[in-house]
């Protein structure tokens, strides 16, 4: 009812009011930024500046930046701000990343993946 599909020419990706998030993680990353902003961890201009910086960095590294990688930039910006605000350093992020990886490995395919203390590498 709302909107007509647009015609893809000249490198502008089209959409016909497709899904707002392509994968669940995009929605999670999106919501985390909004929640942290609401808590006053950063201002919205601060967020926009960080996000714009990540987009520039990705473009410089060869990302065609067609909008499909938008939430990657979003996630990079989120990690950057969380680190800059001193909430978690890169080491902590890696530690939890690896623990989740371990949790996935030991979880039977199809079962919900849960993080347990034994998933963490001894500090």
């Amino acid at each position: 009812m709302m909107g007509r599909p647009t015609i893809p020419i000249s490198g502008i990706p089209s959409d016909a009011e497709g899904p707002v998030f392509c994968e669940p993680w995009e929605a999670q990353a999106f919501a985390m930024a909004l929640a942290l902003h609401k808590r006053g961890l950063f201002t919205w201009p601060e967020w926009a500046t960080t996000l714009a910086g990540e987009i520039k960095r990705a473009q410089a590294a060869g990302d065609p930046d067609t909008g499909a990688t938008y939430y990657w930039h979003w996630l990079n910006a989120l990690e950057r701000l969380v680190t800059e605000k001193g909430i978690a350093d890169a080491g902590l992020l890696t530690r939890y990343h690896d623990a989740w990886d371990h949790a996935a490995d030991r979880t039977k395919h199809g079962d919900p993946i849960e993080l347990r203390p034994e998933d963490f590498r001894p500090a």
Partner: peptide
Amino acid sequence: GSELSETQLRVRALETIL
């Protein structure tokens, strides 16, 4: 086992820490 993509791992790590 199960598989989480690199991106999923990063998102889960952030979410758990936060």
